[in-house]
Design a protein around this nucleic acid. Structure first.
Lengths: 341, 341
DNA sequence: ATGAAAGCGCTAACAC
DNA sequence: GTGTTAGCGCTTTCAT
């Protein structure tokens, strides 16, 4: 089963190596033989065996994508298919294949990574999350295996290539927007503090608040599991306070959906009673009630650029670590409004 | 770079073939040599080169997953990461790797499929969509390449293995539920009529309506692009009618989100003015306002079972085509209520 | 129970 | 320009 390079060679009346060179489009082969060989390939329906090629080339022309371990529901976030689409697009362009690992739990994820790396299945990896004390990162760093992070590394920031937004600034902008609308009581709802993205967005929020000389009670900074129970607890906590917030910075659109729902249940409506700002500009940010003022972080581009970086890196191992910052754009919609006096 | 089977053989004082047999856990090797060889592998940090193995085995221990071409926003549907998680879980268990292709457009998707199939990159494919006149399916069928569909094939139903829900029945149940709540004017909002899933859900809807001897004006069956513009047109169309519906069967939770939003804009509220039923039980179905009555189609299981079928099939090419029907469960929530008299 | 050797399909020196 | 040949790392007869 399967036409090989030899069959083509025979049919075209040349040596196998010539066929190989034609495939590689080696300039030292005459145009005429190229034509003849290509014709033979067509007629026989030849397709190169990637495994054989990779075996000798010691590379796989494939990159791996590691999703966050799926114990939590975070994977249901449309963020992931969207980055994947970006990565896939660049991979396709450059003829790379795309492996994914959706580790059930942390341990399984590590196993998969080891399999991919040790088995020469992929030339490099993209991590779609960034956590502190991540055994996968440790493993890759030790092995000196090429990888890039979508998001910001929690440590060794200068030694790891990553693709990210300026989340601090974006968050600050968002908060400042609320301040400019007259809000003086602004709270922050974020995901796990283990995630660097949460931390950055928190920092930006704090910076804006402090700069404006507004109060910053610790009760205004709430962290909830990324999706679980839709931010209900967060809302409960915040709106029981003596001085409940009138503005909210929420770290993710999907979380915001939960927040809005919890608010409605509590009889608080957006934007009349509370203005909400959010992150990611998922498709659903436009079709919620109200549509969300949110940061478009260009998820697709995050994907494309991470793939680009990684592939560069696998081709040139000496490529220095770099950071790529993807610009963001705030989409102003109906979930924010000026404070009523 | 890389420890090979030879290094292990030398260190353990055996022949390479013996090491190979140890890896395969061949019973004809004595326990003692096995131990010795395994020890050597550990000490050297040996890992088999998958490419070499696959080259001789003529298999890749990998399966490919084809997403729908991402031109539309459908990919942002959390359905996809969720099936992927299911597939990945089974693949991991069985030590298979997972390739994905997120074709930009139809043509690119076909290219990727050809690359995967012809290059021996994968042993089989899972299609995460089912469309009429799909060139990818045609290609695979011609090649006799193993594949399974998540969803129902539009043709050759008995010759293709697929994993699906009983969408007709589920849709009928949903519609009947509305009827039992006293609704007499029930409309259907579905996605593209090219998708078999839409068709099945439409059939179920119709069956229930007819069985109850209710009117079934053609204006009550609306098809909109799966996500685009959040069902706004659909809503506009339906609620301009002389007799607007009081019950809605919508083919997807994410679409429903758009529908609810459009309704609110039009001053129609759910469930007071219109009851809504939906499909998929995405995470967000619980955190919308109101929470949705929706069919839990067990997306994760769809993934697991499709992987299981496919892997069985790649191992035994004679495995007959079969259909696996995953049970569903209707989640009754607040988006449906009895009609007010 | 183990070793020797051939070969999977391809590429890359090295010849000429 | 093109052919010859030697592997890449592994599995798998065929011997012993």
């Amino acid at each position: 089963m399967g036409i090989t390079i030899k069959d083509v060679a025979k049919k075209a009346g040349v040596a196998p190596s010539t066929v190989s060179r034609v495939i590689a489009d080696n300039p030292r082969i005459s145009i005429e033989t190229k034509k003849r060989v290509r014709k033979a390939m067509k007629e026989l329906g030849y397709h190169p065996n990637i495994n054989a090629r990779n075996l000798v080339a010691r590379s796989s022309q494939a990159i791996g994508v590691i999703m966050p371990s799926s114990a939590d529901k975070a994977l249901q976030n449309p963020f992931f298919p969207e980055v994947l689409r970006g990565i896939g697009s660049y991979a396709h362009e450059t003829q790379y294949s795309l492996y994914v690992a959706t580790g059930g739990n942390e341990e399984q994820a590590l196993e998969e990574v080891k399999r991919m790396v040790n088995g020469n299945i992929v030339d490099g990896l993209i991590l779609l999350y960034s956590r502190m004390h991540d055994p996968i990162q440790q493993f890759l760093t030790e092995k000196q295996f090429p990888y890039v992070i979508v998001g910001k590394p929690s440590e060794l920031e200068n030694e790891i290539t990553y693709v990210d937004n300026d989340n601090v600034k974006a968050s600050k902008d968002l908060t400042t927007h609320l301040i400019e609308l007259g809000h003086e009581h602004i709270a922050f709802i974020g995901g796990s503090t283990e995630l660097t993205v949460t931390i950055d967005r928190l920092i930006g929020y704090k910076a804006a608040i402090l700069e404006a000389n507004l109060p910053l009670p610790t009760e205004y900074m709430v962290h909830t599991e990324f999706l679980k129970s839709g931010g209900r607890e967060a809302v409960a906590q915040l709106f029981q306070l003596e001085q409940p917030p009138t503005g909210l910075v929420v770290a993710d659109d999907l979380m915001t959906l939960g927040v809005i729902h919890a608010l409605e249940e509590a009889g608080i409506s957006c934007p009349q009673d509370v203005s909400i700002t959010s992150f990611n500009n998922l498709y659903l940010a436009e079709i919620t009630t109200p549509p969300l003022t949110t940061v478009d972080i260009q998820i697709y581009q995050l994907g494309v650029q991470s793939a680009r970086c990684l592939i560069e890196k696998t081709k040139n191992k000496e490529e220095p670590a770099k950071r790529i910052i993807i610009p963001y754009e705030i989409k102003y919609r109906k979930s924010t409004t000026a404070i009523k006096k």
